[in-house]
Simulated scan of single mutants.
Amino acid sequence: MRTSVLVAVLALSASGVFAADKSVENPLIESPTWIELRDDIVGDVTLQDGTGLFTVDAPYRAFDAATVPISIIQTDTDAVITQADIVIDENPAPLAARMSFGTGMSPLKLELRVRVNTYSNIRVIAQTDQGSFMQGRYVKASGGCSAPATKDPKAALKGIGQMRLKPIANALPASGQRREAQIMIRHPNYSGFQRDQITHLFMNAHFIDRLDVYQGDDLLFTLDGGISISENPVFRFEYTDNGAPALRIRAEDTEGNVFEEMLDKGTSS
């Protein structure tokens, strides 16, 4: 049963990855909330228009507010993006994730899934040696942070921390070439706004707040996350192969649990 659920989630994730830029359909809109948040997120840093550096894609109207796909695709391949903050203006905890990237992730091409609580701008603020750049989308979604979990708490905790790596390339590339992979981590990522379907009491927040992904000893990316990262997090990304046979994934959650796996890069299935 666990395997079938994993396969279903991975297949769903693959269906919407790295979609084309649709900025004309849902660009960022004026946001009084962002005016209040801005100093807490970036301080007095000047935010430059990120249009020439990268694109952000997210649906104008989300199919499922609890699993909204966001893809970030770097278009200026001469630049190096070292960090990206993902901000969902109207969420209870607006800073959804702060990610740092190793050189193997450049140029950046990444997708992850988030919860969106109400109609909101989703912003990506990228750091390079040329400064900070912002791009984003306005997404119509509702109730993502309080949406019921897909499993009851006991069932969800049975497989907690299970990981799977799905290579995407059709053939194993040589060292130094770009390749694509998808990581899925089984974790309920409870937001603290969901109710137990039996007791109807609020469930305690319990989520992955740190993720580190390496190939061999080389860092690919880290994530400091919060309640806005979806249940059973999925990350799809491109990276430059360094010849190491496996990816090493280490995740920590707010209960102090540590999950660590060495996952063979393998070939696509």
Rank of each mutant, 00 (worst) to 15 (best):
A97I: 13
R98H: 05
S100T: 15
S100L: 12
S100A: 07
F101R: 11
G102V: 03
T103M: 11
S106I: 02
S106Y: 10
S106D: 03
P107V: 04
P107K: 12
K109G: 03
K109A: 08
L110I: 12
L110T: 02
L110P: 02
E111K: 13
R113T: 03
R113F: 15
V114P: 00
V114S: 05
V114D: 04
R115C: 06
R115T: 00
V116R: 15
V116Q: 13
Y119G: 00
Y119D: 08
Y119K: 10
S120A: 13
N121K: 03
N121D: 04
I122D: 02
R123C: 03
R123V: 06
V124T: 11
V124H: 00
I125A: 12
Q127Y: 02
Q127L: 14
Q127D: 06
Q127W: 07
T128A: 07
T128L: 09
T128R: 11
T128K: 06
D129Q: 15
Q130M: 05
Q130V: 01
G131H: 05
F133M: 12
F133A: 10
F133G: 11
M134I: 14
Q135F: 02
Q135P: 02
R137Y: 13
R137L: 07
Y138I: 03
Y138T: 01
Y138F: 15
V139P: 07
V139R: 08
V139T: 08
V139M: 14
V139G: 10
V139Q: 09
K140D: 10
K140S: 08
K140R: 15
A141C: 09
A141E: 11
A141W: 14
S142V: 12
G144Q: 09
C145D: 08
S146C: 10
A147S: 10
P148R: 11
P148W: 07
P148Q: 09
P148S: 14
P148C: 08
T150F: 11
P153M: 02
P153I: 01
K154L: 06
K154Q: 15
K154C: 00
K154V: 05
K154D: 14
K154H: 13
K154E: 13
A155R: 15
A155Q: 14
A155W: 05
A155L: 11
A156I: 01
L157F: 05
L157M: 14
G159R: 13
G159S: 15
I160C: 05
G161I: 08
G161L: 01
Q162P: 00
M163I: 13
R164I: 08
L165F: 12
L165A: 07
L165V: 08
K166P: 01
P167G: 09
P167F: 04
P167Y: 04
P167D: 04
I168L: 05
A169E: 12
N170T: 15
N170D: 13
A171K: 12
L172F: 09
L172Y: 09
L172S: 11
P173K: 11
P173G: 07
S175W: 00
S175M: 10
S175F: 01
G176F: 07
G176W: 07
Q177H: 06
Q177Y: 01
R178Q: 12
R179M: 13
E180L: 08
E180H: 09
A181C: 10
Q182H: 02
Q182D: 04
I183M: 03
I183L: 14
M184D: 01
I185C: 00
I185Q: 02
I185R: 03
I185S: 03
R186K: 04
H187R: 13
H187Y: 12
H187Q: 07
P188R: 13
